[in-house]
Simulated scan of single mutants.
Amino acid sequence: MKFNKVFFLAIVFIVMVWSCKKDDDGIVYEPPKALSEIVNLDNDSIVKYMETHFYNYEEFANPPAGFDYRIVLGKIEGDNADKTPLSEMMQSETVTVRSREIGLDNDKEVEHTYYYLVAREGAGESPTVADATYIRYEGLLLNGTIFDASTVNPIWLEYTNRIRGFSVGTQHFKAGDNIIVNNDGTYEIENYGVGLIIFPSALGYYSGTAGSIPSYSPLIFKIDLMTVDEADHDNDGVPSYREDLNGNGYLADDNTDLKSEEKIQTTLVPNFLDNDDDNDGRLTRDEISDADGNIVFPYPDSNNDGTPDYLDPNY
């Protein structure tokens, strides 16, 4: 399984697919477990991991000659019994996960905590949750199994190629600087950000499986963030991060013309993939541009009702 080939809609599908098992009567389909059943189990597993593992912080603090600025994880035992655990170094944030996002037919919301470590800050800009990132990464389970990696050559990852925990986590790092583009299209980048993300299964694949990742698996990602490219997935002139209207870092639940799409029973398209966000027949780009085609910001609000024209079907 290559992480960069896991598309956004495929992720939504995966978490909605029910797991199954056989019994004497044939196949019994089991719906995903409730978020409330898993959230504390995941967090307990993550906290236990952080309390019993460390990273090579001493090398980052005093880099030896030829140090490659790669995170190395180890267990606190034996010769490493005196190491400072990750639990004393990592920071945390919470995000709200709605049951519908992981394939359950209810509107329950549960807060989930993810953890991140900035081993080297980086000298460039931080990405938003929606931006494309040029990145090296290694994905691990809590038992140390590597399920995917691109550790030699960086690759571009779009928002639509990433799971939610990866997107919210990478926004805490900074890209590099002094970017040199080689003739073969590769990059040489200095002072890039290096870090670690650990997040619960609801920010990953939850009840779904992907390659060697079992159901309900918290995930670890080592990150080398090389550079960032602001994304506009529908090319409507509004950067994708600005289409996160409710500010929850999850672009799929922002859909201004949801009711009109439901009424005509068409495909539901979130704003960041919709070039006519209010479905009024006028392209978003036209509603945020002046007569010369230049985008105007703040975006025009012709009737001064507090809603920009491109989100206002009544304008």
Rank of each mutant, 00 (worst) to 15 (best):
residue 245 L to S: 07
residue 96 T to H: 12
residue 160 T to W: 11
residue 231 A to N: 05
residue 135 I to K: 10
residue 116 Y to T: 07
residue 240 S to N: 02
residue 27 I to P: 07
residue 150 S to H: 06
residue 67 F to L: 01
residue 137 Y to C: 05
residue 236 D to M: 08
residue 275 N to H: 06
residue 51 E to Y: 07
residue 253 D to C: 01
residue 219 L to V: 10
residue 180 I to W: 13
residue 240 S to D: 07
residue 241 Y to G: 07
residue 4 N to Q: 15
residue 281 G to Q: 00
residue 297 F to I: 10
residue 155 I to F: 06
residue 31 P to E: 02
residue 204 G to L: 05
residue 297 F to P: 01
residue 144 G to D: 04
residue 204 G to W: 12
residue 107 D to A: 05
residue 205 Y to W: 13
residue 234 D to K: 06
residue 179 I to Y: 10
residue 127 P to G: 07
residue 154 P to A: 15
residue 89 M to L: 10
residue 217 S to L: 10
residue 244 D to I: 02
residue 152 V to F: 13
residue 96 T to E: 12
residue 77 E to L: 07
residue 222 K to F: 12
residue 202 A to W: 03
residue 296 V to N: 00
residue 152 V to N: 12
residue 309 D to V: 05
residue 100 R to G: 14
residue 114 Y to S: 11
residue 296 V to G: 05
residue 5 K to M: 13
residue 103 G to H: 00
residue 286 D to C: 00
residue 276 D to R: 01
residue 197 I to L: 14
residue 161 N to E: 15
residue 245 L to W: 04
residue 157 L to F: 08
residue 154 P to L: 12
residue 130 A to M: 08
residue 24 D to Y: 06
residue 233 H to R: 14
residue 80 N to T: 07
residue 84 T to Y: 06
residue 286 D to W: 12
residue 34 A to G: 09
